[in-house]
């Protein structure tokens, strides 16, 4: 009962807060987007995240998560979740980019949070350094996302997704918002310039040609060992049998 009351209070407080934010916002188109975003939110998101984005027993509060979080989660199709078992999967987005932007504007209007990265990230090719990005990636990202960005396993069926389809915007959004299991890599710890280098390295890894033939998933000794022990050893056994068979 007490919890419900507290939730109610939080919800009320923030709806008042959001109303005042709306009034403070001078731009008409912005407030229109916030209104549209609120309508979409009420239809598509509120059943789990609460009517005022205050969260619930099955979903976290979205107050203060910022526009970047919405753009990442909804823009990559992870939200709305298709099933609530382990983790939200990347899939075809349920909303158009305009609708995603509207929901992002609405959630951003609730409380300050990380904003969607601007046009500065398009210059990663010019401003980033692949070598520096590789060093940063190996220290900060490789333990979960694999040394080649292929993704990897976490506990209880959770996993760090592959980065082979990621675009610069979602890479930065993931680092500054820390979606799902991923921790936050804030701009003071990995500076925006260093983030560009990480993007440049990931983009280079995405098009890295496989000079040695089949890359076997680029996951290291697991697939390589499996192939050597099954195909390689099988071939050797086959040859040994053929050598020992008497000709007729």
């Amino acid at each position: 009962m007490l919890l419900l009351f507290a939730l109610f209070m939080i919800g009320t407080t923030f709806s008042v807060a959001s109303a005042s934010t709306k009034q403070a916002s001078g731009s008409l188109s912005r407030s229109v987007a916030i209104d549209e975003g609120r309508q979409i939110f009420l239809k598509g998101c509120s059943s789990c995240h609460g009517l005022n984005a205050e969260g619930g027993s099955i979903a976290p509060s979205l107050i203060g998560v910022g526009a970047a979080s919405v753009d990442f989660q909804v823009g990559t199709g992870r939200m709305p979740m298709a099933d609530m078992t382990v983790q939200a999967m990347r899939k075809t987005p349920a909303y158009t980019p305009e609708q995603v932007a509207a929901v992002a504007a609405y959630v951003a209007s609730l409380a300050p949070g990380p904003a969607i990265p601007g046009s500065e990230i398009v210059n990663y090719e010019r401003d980033g350094s692949t070598a520096e990005g590789g060093e940063l990636f190996r220290t900060n990202c490789a333990m979960c996302h694999n040394f080649a960005g292929q993704g990897g396993a976490l506990s209880q069926g959770k996993f760090a997704p592959t980065l082979m389809e990621s675009d610069p915007k979602t890479i930065v959004e993931a680092m500054i918002t820390g979606p799902q299991s991923m921790p936050v890599f804030s701009d003071k710890i990995i500076t925006p310039a260093e983030k560009l280098s990480i993007i440049k390295w990931i983009k280079a890894a995405q098009v890295e040609p496989s000079l040695g033939g089949a890359a076997l998933g680029r996951v290291g000794p697991v697939t390589e060992g499996l192939l050597a022990w099954t195909l390689g050893l099988g071939l050797l056994i086959g040859i040994a049998v053929w050598l020992a068979t008497k000709a007729r």
């Binding site: 921790p183 804030s186 710890i189 260093e194």
Partner: peptide, 18 residues
């Protein structure tokens, strides 16, 4: 920080940051 060798202030880390 590793790499970068920059000193860190507590405010540089949000909740959930590493």
């Amino acid at each position: 920080t590793d790499p970068g060798n920059r000193p860190i202030k507590p405010s540089d880390l949000e909740v959930g940051a590493v």
